[in-house]
Amino acid sequence: MQSSPAPRRSYGGKSADQRRAERREAVLGAALEIWQESGWAAVTMRGVCARAGLTDRYFYESFTDRDALLAAIWDQMRDETLTMLLGAITPYADDDPVEQLHAALVAIVHHVGDEPRRAQIIFGDHSGSAVLEQRRRDTIQMAVDLVIDLARPYLRADVDEVAFRVNVLMGIGGFVETILAWRSGLITVDTDALVEHLAGVSVDLAPRFLRPWR
């Protein structure tokens, strides 16, 4: 007669998987706080574990090294930012595509201005970290693909696809650099004024690539 497998033990009503997931979230939360307070370079395995109240072995339970932890935080913030942007655009789905872009600019610029600690993850200084610099490049390309997909229904029939991609890439890369300059004080305007300056660039470029709206 075959014996049945022994039941998995639980502690405090939680399974081993639940407790492992909670420890992972504690490590992520502690690392995020340190990054927001002092920059990515201050995120260390021992510092994170000390803040999370965990021993070192629980760090390696979820992450192979510090780079894996930094990448996980970046991916989480990137996904939350993209979700926020899509949510901002959705109410304008039937409007002029330039209005959709304006709504996205309002959302992201206010996000950076109103929540600078969170914005530091995506719009901070990542020099010196190969994994974060690669994540930054990948995220820009992801944003380029997203903008192109959203704009495709509105493109002119004779649009030059390469020229359009180059301009979108320049626009998003320039946007990121503008936000960095704004955060560092090199550009001194309020949030709404910055939105209008950025939106003006898209208005100037729109006739070259987008068909007349309605």
Rank of each mutant, 00 (worst) to 15 (best):
R9V: 03
M1Y: 09
R183S: 04
A93E: 13
V112E: 07
W74I: 02
I179K: 00
F63T: 09
G200Q: 08
V162D: 12
R211G: 11
L70C: 10
M1S: 13
M84S: 11
H197D: 07
V168E: 00
V166Y: 12
A157K: 06
A6Q: 14
I140C: 09
L101N: 12
L150M: 15
L69S: 00
H111Q: 08
A41Y: 02
I179T: 02
L54Y: 00
A151Q: 04
G87S: 13
R118I: 02
V162T: 13
Y154R: 04
Y11W: 11
V98L: 06
V162R: 13
G87Y: 05
Q134P: 00
I187H: 03
E115L: 06
G87D: 11
V195E: 05
S3F: 12
K14I: 04
D75I: 01
L132G: 05
T178M: 07
R20L: 08
V166R: 13
R117A: 14
K14G: 02
K14S: 07
Q141V: 09
F63H: 02
G174I: 06
S184I: 05
R136Q: 12
V27P: 03
I172W: 01
G29L: 10
N167Q: 15
Y11C: 06
G200L: 09
A71V: 15
P7T: 12
G87I: 11
L205N: 06
A181L: 14
A71E: 14
G185K: 14
D67L: 13
Y60W: 07
L32V: 04
A119R: 05
